[in-house]
């Protein structure tokens, strides 16, 4: 069974996070005009942005711990 941090080291979670991120960043454009109001959009995008930063932090943490041998997770 893979250790939890090994799961974070693959390309798959990055692709998944990318697709989810893209979906979340696209959602206001598919919704009604209210979702594109500057007030809502600003707060919404900042929240998504913060979420992405957390995911990036988790991925970076597991990547830094991935040695030795670094890169084998690829």
């Amino acid at each position: 069974m893979q250790r939890p941090n090994r799961v974070w080291q693959g390309v798959a979670p990055r692709v998944l996070a990318f697709l989810v991120g893209l979906l979340l960043l696209s959602w206001p454009f598919w919704s009604g005009p209210a979702r594109r109001a500057p007030g809502f959009l600003l707060v919404y995008l900042i929240v998504v942005w913060l979420g992405l930063i957390v995911v990036l932090w988790l991925l970076a943490r597991s990547a830094s711990r991935s040695s030795p041998p670094p890169g084998e997770e690829d």
Binding site: R14, A17, F18, G21, W49, V55, L56, L59, D74
Partner: peptide, 10 residues
């Protein structure tokens, strides 16, 4: 760039 950084490590 924030989205793209998901692949920076690669």
């Amino acid at each position: 760039p924030t989205l793209g950084m998901l692949f920076w490590w690669v």
